[in-house]
Every structure is written in C-alpha cells, then in structure tokens.
C-alpha cells in the first residue's frame, strides 16, 4: 500500500519529461543514491517496502549501498568489485531473457 504513496512523488517528477524517459530514470537514480548516502533510504524502505524497492530506486540503492559499504575494503577491491553483488542477478537474468527473446524474434 505504501508503494502508491512513494510512486506518486516519482510520477510528478517523471510525467513532465514523458517524451524523454532517460533523464527521468537518471534523476530518480540520483535521488535514490543521495538518499542512500544520507543514510535515510533504509529508514524509508522499512516503511515503503516494495514501493521503493521495485522501481529503479531499489536498483540504485542496492548499487550505492554496496559501493559505500565496501569502500573500506578499497576502491578497486571493495567498491569496484562488490558494487553489483546484489543487483547483478537483475542484469544477468535481464540479459539472458532479452537474449532469448531477441533470438526468437530474429529467427521467426
């Protein structure tokens, strides 16, 4: 239910730029990353649940929080290598699905 509340905010940001979805996505990612850096994203998420995890905000938060947390283990060996530990499966399975879908569409 809380998802509706959060999404409202994003909608008012996104809709004026409906022509260009890309700046919207980038802006939303920036906001999510900033909230993560400020230490409040996890507090909001406790309340909002899927409402903040399912949109790309969740993606941005998982990347940012891993990057921040493992900075202590080095920029290369920590931040760099662990950044996608949580979001990686989204990319992997997204690509795999798209590959299959793309192949099928190309061959039929």
């Amino acid at each position: 239910m809380f998802g509706q509340l959060i999404l409202n905010i994003y909608v008012s940001l996104g809709v004026p730029q409906q022509e260009a979805g890309n700046p919207t996505v980038a802006t939303v990612i920036f906001i999510a990353a900033s909230l993560t850096a400020a230490g409040v994203f996890d507090n909001i998420a406790q309340l909002a649940g899927a409402g903040i995890a399912v949109p790309v905000t969740g993606f941005a938060n998982s990347v940012t929080s891993m990057a921040m947390e493992f900075r202590r283990e080095g920029l290369v060996t920590g931040t760099g290598s662990k950044m996608f530990a949580l979001a990686g499966s989204i990319i992997v399975f997204g690509v795999v699905t798209a590959f299959v879908v793309g192949l099928i569409s190309a061959l039929i």
């Binding site: 900033s34 230490g39 790309v56 929080s65």
Partner: peptide, 27 residues
C-alpha cells in the same frame, strides 16, 4: 544492441553510486 537503451540506467547507477561511495560513509 542489447545495452543501447539501458545504458542510462546502468551508467547513472554506477556513476552516482561511485560518487556517493567516495564522499559518504555508511552510518
């Protein structure tokens, strides 16, 4: 062609995530 349209999302997440990691510590 796969990452053509998603480039914004991934690039933005990496760049902003990296900047935040440089400037802020987890609390």
């Amino acid at each position: 062609g796969m990452f053509e349209l998603t480039s914004t999302g991934i690039t933005a997440a990496i760049i902003f995530g990296f900047i935040m990691a440089l400037c802020f510590k987890p609390k």
